[in-house]
């Protein structure tokens, strides 16, 4: 199973991940290698097996509908890259 440079670029775009052009080939090789590992799994018959998303048989606990968090804007925004008037700023989004 082989991934092309183009495949890598498409995936990188989905993940909004900047990759240097010179590294694309090596990522393609690495990923192809990982995918080769994966093919081992196809040897195993899993027709009647249900997927396991969590290791234990737990069910979701419910939280009472109570407000427990209060305004900590200053505290949280102290570590923000760019804020103004209490808003997080990003380059303009065009809709």
């Amino acid at each position: 199973m082989s991934l092309t440079a183009n495949d890598v670029k498409k995936i990188a775009h989905l993940a909004r991940l900047g990759i240097d052009e010179q590294d694309v080939e090596s990522y393609a090789n690495d990923l192809s290698g990982m995918l080769d590992l994966m093919t081992q799994m196809s040897e195993l018959n899993t027709d009647n097996v249900s997927p396991m998303a969590h290791p234990l048989d737990q069910i979701q606990r419910l939280r009472p509908d109570v407000v427990t968090e209060h305004n900590q804007r200053e505290h949280f925004q102290a570590i923000a890259p760019q804020v103004e008037d209490g808003l997080y700023l990003v380059p303009k989004v065009i809709e």
Partner: peptide
């Protein structure tokens, strides 16, 4: 903003795994 912040700040192994996972 997204591509460069993530591209410049994540190392190769992390990128590898993000790419693998996304795929």
């Amino acid at each position: 903003l997204y591509t460069r912040s993530r591209g410049e700040a994540f190392g190769k192994e992390v990128k590898r795994r993000i790419l693998m996972g996304t795929y």
